[in-house]
Design a protein around this nucleic acid. Structure first.
Lengths: 236, 236
DNA sequence: AACAAGTCAAGAGCAGTGCTCTCTCAAACA
DNA sequence: TGTTTGAGAGAGCACTGCTCTTGACTTGTT
């Protein structure tokens, strides 16, 4: 969407220096985020660590929210890349295996980067509204699932068991195809989205503490649950 | 757990006054929370509105986290009450109907009190760790589901279709029964928890903006999805 | 009734925050 | 060789959580 390629290639020395500083600030910010969470992310602290005075950082990020947005975009991309890698590591026709790999990819990344996960899937940062820049990276992970559904139907692993889907929902669901360029029937897409919310609901429950004192062997529990979900999305 | 009954009945005039002030502060805090979210909840602002100087509020809440904890407990109880009411409005043997009512109860409360929902099911407030006071009210909502499972089995609507559950997970799952005093088989409990994460995963996705630009008719979408989940938990 | 103990509001103050404004100076461009 | 542009510095505003001290008031006890 954004003119990323055109605008972000540093041409002059000044632009190069700016890009360097910006990258360093983002990197420091990401570390602060990982260590202390989003609420503790402070422009002043980042500036201090970068060796500049607090007012100078406003040359790079017009506000704290702008820094957060940059980190959110990065987080979406990191998760997307991780999931894509997990998915690519399986035989293309092994739908059930790819689903499990995908689940493990999401959960693994979420656990390893819990604050970033919270940033994108947790409560929205108050007073902050995600700008349009975030929707493209956000859909990257979802696309992996949709293409899994697509391949599943292609090789017959997933069949359209039908089932009536109310018109307005059907419209939304087949509308999703225009984003991916694929052609998933509404009933299948419905099951896919159910699996999706189940996956992230589980990960969020685990990371946000809802399993405390209840579930102890979380690796196994997750595997069992996701296997169940996988069967449901495949068999209808 | 806490000696709530013994300590909280105001005896002297002073204790009464203290209880009144405490209730007013909580009420103001809850309103601020509803209007601006948890990050914007400020002890100073609450004190100001209550007509006292900022330092005075520390007589009532030793820290900002303490105020948050109080509001979190209230939120858990409010959700629990709402869900219990929704569940009680159905015929006891109408398992599927009770499930849908329960779902609508959760979602309805969450939408009407989105900031409080975010407080308890969203990303944990950074630097804040839930004290033991919150676990009792938190389990209240879960108990409603467990008792639904229990009644479902009692009247034959839910049958134990078996299915192998790995030993450590089985242990966790039957361990949950000791909290409720019921006796749900591991395989059924597994399906119940799956439904649970699906429900809250869906509501969180909706409230935290993951459905933006994707799902438009959210009421219908929710109903369709929860109906599907209900069938899965009932039929195995 | 007098006193000691306990409680509370208030004020000042510390260190931190986001953000704005003005200033200076050096690099890039013409 | 000027002239423009942009980066950093510094002061400052209004706000935050939290602490400490002081003076007034309320209790229960002597």
């Amino acid at each position: 969407m954004t003119t990323l390629s055109a605008a972000s290639i540093p041409r002059t020395a000044r632009e190069q220096a700016r890009a360097d500083v910006l990258a360093e600030l983002k990197s420091i910010g990401r570390r602060h985020l990982a260590e202390s969470g989003s609420a503790a992310l402070s422009l002043r602290a980042v500036a201090r660590e970068a060796g500049m005075v607090s007012s100078a950082i406003y040359r790079y990020f017009p506000s704290r929210d702008e820094l957060l947005t940059a980190l959110i975009v990065d987080a979406y991309n990191a998760l997307g890349a991780e999931v894509e890698r997990a998915d690519a590591g399986r035989r293309r026709s092994d739908i059930a295996g790819r689903w499990m790999a995908l689940c493990r990819g999401v959960r693994g990344w979420a656990i390893a980067n819990s604050h970033e996960y919270a940033l994108i899937f947790g409560s929205p940062v108050p007073g902050y509204h995600a700008p349009q820049d975030t929707v493209d990276p956000a859909s990257r992970t979802t696309l992996t699932l949709v293409s899994l559904l697509h391949h599943g139907m292609e090789c017959g692993a997933i069949t359209n068991t039908g089932g009536a889907v109310p018109a307005p929902v059907r419209k939304d669901l087949i509308g999703l195809n225009s984003l991916s360029g694929m052609d998933i029937p509404a009933a299948v897409m419905l099951r896919g989205l159910a699996a999706w919310t189940q996956l992230f609901g589980h990960v969020s429950f685990e990371l946000f503490g809802q399993f405390t004192n209840l579930i102890h062997d979380r690796d196994t529990f997750f595997a069992v649950q996701m296997k169940l979900v996988g069967q449901q999305v495949i068999n209808g």
